[in-house]
Write a protein that binds this DNA or RNA. Structure first.
Lengths: 123, 123
DNA sequence: CCATCTGTATTATGTGCTTAATACAATAAT
DNA sequence: ATTATTGTATTAAGCACATAATACAGATGG
């Protein structure tokens, strides 16, 4: 598992986003037990406190449920998961379009660029 | 001028990116004199030290030139400006594609989503 | 000449993030 | 029953970022 944490933004924020992505993409399945705070902290090479803080944040989205002494579990509400996926995707699209427009491209140019990229290479 | 600075990342970093965008998008023309540190700090509602730090960073890209006592100027090298624009666009595309793929979409789905968005509404 | 504007530097203060080192309570596992 | 594992809480330290309040040197403009 590559965590790819950079130092530009708070680590705990990046972890929240990473875990969200892993849930909505199906890396962690609905109902699945997540690794413990200490385990994940070790895997991501961060302090347990930092991982704990990430979980506390993530919990507010209700994508995960906490059972005080047995661990944390992914929600079984697949509709909610799908909805979060859609919301996050829309956010990313908006961020991307705003950035590209800020760089001086219009909507058509952006799509054209992406189409070229898709059809052109295989990366 | 809306600066839209958030508290999630260092302000000076966001300002560097904003100024880069304003230069490559043509908001600031080649050779144009930029507002002073104090002026821009005031406009962006940040401390002059923070704006100064942003400029120091931005200077390393050579998009701007400093004249010790008269101010800062956008480079007149339009090829370099164009090249920076391309580089920044490629970075944004990569970031976007990685995020979307992390959310569980494949390349074709991403382009389809964007095409729908372009043709669908006018936002 | 003199006041003003330029970039730049310095010192101090506060805040949030991160790490480290513990500790505790409740449950699960043996 | 005892041990291990779970989430959680606390305290201390270090660091980067941001603000505030100044100060200085070298042009520029009147």
């Amino acid at each position: 598992m590559a965590w790819n944490l950079d130092s530009d933004r708070p680590i705990y924020t990046q972890i929240v986003e990473k875990l969200q992505m892993q849930i909505v993409s199906g890396f962690y399945k609905p109902g699945e037990k997540l690794p413990s705070v200490r385990e994940l902290a070790c895997a991501a090479c961060v302090n347990p406190n930092t991982m704990q803080k990430a979980f506390t944040e993530l919990e507010r989205s209700e994508l995960i449920l906490t059972q005080r002494t047995s661990g944390r579990f992914v929600t079984e509400d697949i509709d909610m998961i799908k909805q979060v996926q859609t919301t996050l995707a829309e956010e990313q699209i908006k961020i991307f379009m705003d950035k590209m427009r800020g760089l001086g491209f219009n909507r058509e140019e952006i799509v054209t660029l992406l189409e070229l990229l898709i059809k052109g290479d295989s990366k």
